[in-house]
Design a binder for these strands. Structure first.
Length: 744
DNA sequence: TACGCCCCAGTTTTT
DNA sequence: CTGGGGCGTA
């Protein structure tokens, strides 16, 4: 294998630097997967590193699967002994072995966001927290942030001792965590946090994994949160064989706790780190790259770099103004059909949007026009009611302490066990300090219920116990069929008059296929493993390019993928970037990165569309054209129809028009509203000054030092050192990025 | 206990 | 506009 022929100079260096910390800053389309896979192959072939000594972490299961496939094609079957998976899958695997150290059982259940919500609801009810004071959504979000930053309930409580509201959150966090443990369940964040907890509390366990994973690789490093960072740090701090790949410009998950400092500070954490930049883009035509660069360069908080093209300019970026969202969809589909007639395959095209709600219009038209399409995300298959019901049965069989699942199906199908009964049982369980299932097991000891109701509960209990026994002798697929039949669930759907229930039956059949497929693939199929795989898949994982259909997905889901033709739709200030971005510079920067990710998905052709009128919540609203379109220089874009004059920057891009209930247009000017608010609250206007603003002679104002004149500037490692002669305070040296300066 | 009607919140983004 | 949840009634 002649790597030097296969790789460019930087790629070669990144591939062959195996020992010690390595940061690969890989711009979009710069061949980082190529580097990662060849690097793994190089490690094994040239350096005799064993596959089981390597831990490679990716962002999605799909990325993991692809990487595994590509590594396998380079080194053969031995690739199967390597851990290539997501943070969550790897940690779940570790926890299945080690979690007993923390007092959980190995057959723990993984709770998704719906389960979380229902558990938190219980918690708030038990704490008698009024919904108006704290919703479960807020509580969950705070708990999640805490877990992502490794703040445990006790420390959380301490931290907010004197904070009335957060103190309530702290109590909720404590009880929530207690219930999770009682249910023998972990939420998504726990999967990472508990692994870290074990590593920190039990050095001998940590050592075991440090010895095992002598080489660690992390992809999409810019999207790791603090807990994940800590995990990697613990594993690698001794041998320091850590290779991370990331691109600060593609960090789009800060809303979920991803901490960009992990990448910006890597060199500080590992002083000996080698840094390799991959800046040559092999994916996109020149104009597409130029467009991406012209959008992202507006961000201040980034490592300076520019993607370099390897292809020629290609066509211009095509901009289309639609009358409304309906017409936008019609245009896109028409264009797709045209491209298809010209010889493109449908699978070469993708529609990327900001929110899942936008997919509906496109689905409608695609269906109408009989264009094959694949929808990624939105209502996931596993999120459908009937699937969740069935999963609840399976989870309960697997782990009887799982109250969330128990409560979900105890009266589905109807068994005359209503809410009051469940509450009575739950109360008794809480009182006795046992699980809900225990109370049901010992039902006869307590006289809680009327005879008839008690009989119903006993019947339910016998059924679950029966499932439990059958689990031992049946395959998962057999168990699924048995449950659907014995519980009466299938029967209720089949005899229902509701037309929706017909498709529910189909979905359950589809689910059975998923199970059968799993049984074929798995080495040792088990209910436990099956459930875990279901909980940890995302929809992007389902994406495959086998059949010829166009792809519909959010910009977030598109990360890591590429398409010859990309339609970015809904480019309107208020939608993308969303309204909150227009007032919060940090959110705006993240939105810009998201735009950058979207643009760089395109290989050959890029369309950007916006609609003058759009249905939002059943109302017609009018947003102005997106800043992201305006950011692209005119010489590399073409308007497919006439531009709307009012949409120019010089008018005011931040005016939102909407129709009130009398169908009258009302203007809402975001900037003016903001100015008014500032006047009232007396906020200083914090316009960030750029380097171009701060030139010698410029008058500036500082809140503490007052008015002064810039006398000199000097470059300082990406920042600018500014020397200012203040009128009353003398001469000061300030760093531009931190000094709260404004023009005077 | 079961069912139907009404109200309201939701649209950022997901492992 | 849509779906879920809460509340009141049979």
């Amino acid at each position: 294998m002649d790597l030097k022929k296969l790789l460019n100079e930087e790629q070669y260096e990144a591939t062959t630097t195996v020992e010690g910390p390595l940061l690969i800053l890989a711009g979009a389309g710069s061949g980082k997967t190529r580097v990662l896979t060849h690097r793994i192959a190089y490690m094994m072939k040239e350096m005799n590193i064993r596959p089981y000594e390597i831990l490679a972490i990716t962002f999605t299961n799909k990325a993991a699967g692809e990487m595994k496939e590509r590594v396998r094609s380079l080194v053969g079957e031995t690739a199967d002994n390597m851990w290539i998976s997501t943070f969550h899958s790897s940690c779940a695997k570790i926890l299945r072995r080690e979690i007993e150290a923390l007092g959980y059982k190995k057959d723990f259940t993984i709770y998704d966001s719906y389960d979380q919500k229902s558990l938190m609801k219980q918690v708030l009810k038990e704490l008698s927290v009024d919904e108006k004071d704290l919703t479960e959504k807020e509580a969950i979000s705070h708990v999640s942030t805490a877990k992502n930053t490794l703040l445990n309930p006790v420390d959380f409580k301490k931290k907010y001792e004197y904070h009335f509201r957060m103190n309530k959150v702290a109590d909720a966090y404590i009880l929530y965590q207690k219930k999770l443990k009682q249910n023998n369940a972990l939420d998504f964040d726990d999967i990472i946090m508990k692994t870290v907890e074990i590593f920190e509390k039990f050095p001998e366990i940590l050592e075991k994994y440090q010895r095992k994973f002598r080489y660690v690789l992390v992809d999409e490093y810019q999207d790791t949160n603090h807990a994940q960072y800590r995990l990697i740090n613990l594993l690698t701090k001794d041998h320091q064989n850590i290779c991370v790949v990331g691109d600060d410009d593609q960090s789009i998950y800060q809303f979920r706790g991803a901490d960009i400092r992990n990448i910006l500070d890597f060199e500080m954490d590992f002083p000996d780190a080698k840094v390799v930049k991959l800046e040559k883009n092999y994916r996109s035509m020149g104009n597409i790259l130029a467009a991406a660069n012209s959008v992202i360069k507006n961000n201040r908080d980034r490592k300076e770099k520019t993607l370099k093209k390897t292809k020629d300019e290609g066509g211009k970026i095509k901009i289309y103004r639609a009358y409304d969202d309906f017409e936008e969809a019609r245009f896109v589909v028409r264009e797709m059909q045209r491209l298809y007639r010209e010889g493109r395959n449908y699978k070469e095209m993708a529609v990327l949007y900001r929110t899942n709600a936008q997919s509906r219009k496109f689905e409608d038209i695609l269906m109408q026009e009989a264009v094959p399409y694949k929808l990624i995300g939105g209502l996931k298959f596993y999120d459908r009611k009937e699937i969740k019901d069935l999963l609840a049965y399976l989870r309960l069989v697997n782990n009887p302490f799982d109250e969330v699942s128990l409560r979900r199906i105890i009266n589905v199908p109807k068994r005359k066990i209503g809410n009051t009964t469940v509450e009575k049982l739950q109360e008794n369980a809480n009182h006795q300090g046992e699980s809900l299932f225990d109370t049901i097991m010992n039902l006869e000891e307590y006289s809680l219920l009327a005879a008839g109701t008690q009989a119903s509960v006993v019947k339910f209990r016998e059924m679950i116990l029966d499932f439990n026994e059958k689990q031992l002798e049946m395959k998962v697929s057999e168990l699924v069929e048995y449950i659907l039949k014995t519980s009466g669930y299938m029967k209720e759907l089949e005899t229902s008059k509701n037309p929706e229930d017909e498709s529910r039956v189909e979905n359950l059949e589809e689910f059975l296929n998923v199970v059968l497929e799993y049984e074929m693939k798995a080495e040792e199929p088990s209910l436990q493993e099956f459930l875990e795989s279901v909980m940890l898949v995302s929809d992007v994982d389902q994406y495959n390019e086998a059949d010829d259909s166009v792809t519909l997905m959010t910009l977030h889901s598109a990360k890591g993928l590429e398409f010859p033709v990309v339609f970015m739709v809904g480019l309107e200030n208020g939608l993308f970037p969303s309204a909150s971005c227009l007032t919060d510079p940090n959110e705006m920067e993240e939105a810009r990165r998201l735009a950058y990710v979207g643009i760089t998905r395109a290989m050959e052709e890029l369309y950007m569309t916006y609609a003058e009128n759009r249905m939002v919540f059943g109302r017609m609203v009018s947003y102005p054209v997106s800043d992201f379109i305006l950011d692209i220089p005119s010489n590399i874009k073409e308007h497919l129809n006439e531009e709307k004059k009012v949409h120019h920057r010089d008018v005011n891009p931040h005016t939102i028009k909407y129709k009130d209930k009398n169908m009258k247009y009302v203007d809402y000017n975001v900037e003016k509203a903001l100015e008014d608010a500032k006047k009232i609250l007396d906020f200083p206007d914090k316009k960030v000054l750029g380097q171009e603003d701060v030139v010698p002679g410029a008058k500036v104002k500082h809140p503490k030092f007052g008015v002064g004149t810039v006398v000199a500037t000097a470059d300082a490692k990406g920042d600018l050192k500014v020397t200012i002669a203040f009128d009353n305070q003398g001469i000061k040296n300030l760093m531009l990025s931190i000094a709260p300066l404004e023009l005077a």
